[in-house]
Amino acid sequence: MIIVSDVHKRYQTDKGYGKWVLNGVSFTIPPRVNVGLVGPNGAGKSTLLRIIGGVDHPSKGEVRRDCSVSWPLGFAGGLQGTMTGRQNAKFVCRIHGREEEIPEKLAFIQDFAEIGDAFDEPVKSYSSGMKSRLLFGMSLAFDFDVYLSDEITAVGDAAFRNKAAAAFKKLSDHAGLIMVSHGEGTLRQFCQAGIWLHQGQAYWFDDIEDALKNYKDSIKL
């Protein structure tokens, strides 16, 4: 369960504080529910995801996590370009768990990512699809209760997306997913519930279709 209560967020800019990106956002995500975050560019979707993941902090309000949450899977960071896929994976294994599990986890990641020999090449030589395969594999190697995904499946090919979806179907009896995506198909494929971010507020919908409908109505106007 993740409880977001009255979260406000604004960033410091060169000219003082910027406007409120999130302005009093509250909702509760029950266990094992897959949620899609929808909203226009700059609505604060990634910011909210980072706050839920604990890598960014709200200016006001709080987030309570009663479960293990993955890091936000996205392209903003998480992979060091000059190091190989294996070295990156090792680093994440080391900060998440015990040393003796590393070989087993590495084998899993290499197997899931299906990037072949590129696993031992520097990450900067990867395509964005390969990066997302690696990141996704890395996160699945650990039994998180909730996975956070920021457009990570957007660049994957159909095979990878199906594989990721199958992995999540398998996980769905004990894990949930919170994802940011502009792809309606992706959202429908992965999520049941939806959160629509609109003018700094968040609206919860039990059905992702309702969230998408509201979002689309808001941009038509």
Binding site: R50, G53, G54, V55, W71, P72, G74, A76, G77, G78, L79, Q80, G81, V92, I95, H96
Partner: peptide, 10 residues
Amino acid sequence: NLALFSYRQV
């Protein structure tokens, strides 16, 4: 190390 701060442990 900016890339690493996407892991909350770091």
